[in-house]
Nucleic acid binder design. Structure first.
Lengths: 343, 343
DNA sequence: CTCAATATTCAAAGCGCTTTGGATTGGCGA
DNA sequence: TCGCCAATCCAAAGCGCTTTGAATATTGAG
């Protein structure tokens, strides 16, 4: 069933039917009702490609997934961010499109997605330091929003980010206040912007307390469970192991916990752990009492906000750039306690 | 830059340029090279909406996400399945589209997605028992594939599924062979088809061993970490607690482990645990030695296969239906051991 | 050198929608 | 009764591409 057929059934022109359906005023209320009833009855749905061709807008927002099997984006966080975003998209009549790109040509993927008219805007996830895609997107004049920021990129762009530095500063200070001196950082991949900011916060807190950082206690890699486990085991084997661990992800923190268990160490007593908690729906940080003391910020929520900001940008391309910095909440659970009195 | 402009630059007709770019034979090799060079140089990309309108195909495959915040689909598994699928899609020139739907109208969402021409086919994820969407999609004659199956649905359709029954039967038998008699099942939501099949396998193994199932030891809900923890705590408090637990997800199994730790019970000694492991990239079941004894089947792999099967279906709508049953592998880790000798 | 056969190229129609510019109708005051 | 303004409705153009049917250029056999 297409417009033409529907209009023939109704004995009206395509113009009138189209207008009736799209809420234009130059059509009588009677006909509008009649048209809507008929459309309903025959299950008419305007062809979105034709509509897009005619209007010049696709009502689709694009995301790019790097194809390498292990990468920051196809992770548990991804699902929650997307769930938040897609909800807002649909509230505004947008769909969501994913394209795959091998790591070498992510820029190319964005460019293609937009220039061939497949999407009205894009979301840039997982920005690295000096992220080149930002400049590319700016130059292309495609509406976009960055989930995160990118140190080293000059120029304005819309972004939404957690205040990674302040939250890790706060978490580190919390550990220091508990008497910990040998504090480890199990961080995400170093070239990711968020990881860098977290490290900055961590180092800043040490500096403020007059402590000097120990490179042996600073690890970084893809934030898997196995990684958290592996690094923890490794550090526990040091001559002078850490009494506290700051961990960039709940997933890795689970690995940390496993390593502690294996070593017969008690979480929150022998070793304190603070994790960053993205508040994933499938991996809640406990019910009433948090499992881990954590810096918490809902990534699903961030997805919703990102979606709304992007849609605003699409609708008003000339507005000044908007940015949003979310403060993570420090929730205190049972994974932290006073530093043990070792000799 | 559109076709018209490009053809004017080249002094050729749109027809010829289009054919040169799409590899049709009725264009000389010289012009083809010239056209391709020019297209490259000017960054020409055919408008996908226009192309879709003209060809009647959108080169997009649709997925529907239920909007309710907690649901089977927006979970860690989702990310890996999608990553697998999108990789294959892009190899075949397809993009992936997500639409959101509130739980009441998932059918409606599929219908709309296809009938308005937005997608060439759809993937149906998380089928329930007697899944109504299957019949809807069949009637609409939209190419689709089900990830999973649906007990109670008559008629043929393409699907790819893990042999949930046999893997849980095998896992249960393995526990029985170790001497366990009080075996608990922490399953997914009961109305999900996979959960039902797993329960069937579990019950079948008990039956074969002459054991009678204990309703108190059979739990089902959304497979979160907190859920695994909660049910385990609860069951450990029973007069006669289980000596082994079969768990439908790694995530929940982590919660199980936490509950055991809290109770001072040793995993694999006091209580044995077998989990179903979807082989998620961020939640590998250990490195060399598996953390949990598990029934393992890569969901990412399933995503890839599903994508390929769907694309075949789109290309040959009249082929007989294809189905694929994957056998999970039983990997033995350190979470299982002989049943303890309680009085 | 001709002419049919083949190799290239092109003009125009069509995909299903929106939207511009115009036509038609009815109502109402003069 | 006439004229004018709203209120409705419509025909046709256009979005950017593919594809049909036809035209033109080239080739090779006779």
């Amino acid at each position: 069933m297409n417009l033409k057929q529907l209009s023939e059934i109704l004995g009206l022109s395509q113009t009138t039917v189209s207008r009736a359906l799209n809420g234009y005023p130059e059509v009588s209320e009677d006909t509008r009702v009649r048209v809507q009833a008929a459309a309903q009855k025959h299950g008419y749905r305007p062809n979105s490609r034709a509509k897009g061709l005619a209007t010049g807008r696709s009502m689709v927002i694009g995301h790019v997934i790097p194809s390498s099997s292990r990468h920051e984006m196809v992770n548990p966080i991804f699902g929650d961010f997307v769930a938040g975003a897609v909800k807002k998209y649909s509230e505004h009549g947008y769909d969501m499109m994913f394209t795959n790109a091998d790591d070498t040509s992510i820029e190319e993927a964005y460019r293609s997605l937009f220039q061939r008219g497949a999407v009205d805007g894009v979301v840039l996830q997982g920005p690295k330091v000096d992220e080149p895609r930002i400049e590319v997107l700016t130059r292309m004049a495609v509406p976009f929003i960055v989930h995160g920021r990118s140190t080293g990129v000059v120029g304005q762009y819309d972004w939404i980010d957690v205040n990674n530095k302040s939250s890790f500063l706060r978490a580190t200070r919390f550990l220091i206040d508990l008497g910990h001196r040998r504090i480890a950082l199990i961080n995400g991949l170093e070239d990711m912007d968020f990881a860098q900011r977290r490290r900055d916060g961590f180092l800043e807190a040490l500096r403020q307390a007059g402590l000097s950082p120990n490179p042996e206690l600073m690890r970084s890699a893809e934030m898997t469970e196995v990684y958290g486990h592996h690094e923890t085991r490794d550090m526990l084997g040091l001559d002078n192991p850490p009494t506290a661990i700051l961990c960039s992800s709940m997933i890795s923190a689970i690995g940390v916990r496993r390593a502690l268990d294996e070593s017969g160490l008690e979480l929150g007593k022998d070793v304190s752990v603070i994790a960053h908690d993205d508040d994933l729906s499938y991996l809640k940080n406990g019910q009433d009492v948090p499992i881990f003391t954590a810096t918490r910020s809902s990534v699903r929520n961030a997805g919703e906000m990102a979606a709304e900001m992007l849609i605003e940008r699409i609708q008003s391309p000339d507005d000044p750039t908007k940015t949003r910095l979310l403060e993570a909440e420090l929730v205190v659970g049972r994974s932290t306690g006073p530093a043990p009195n070792r000799i």
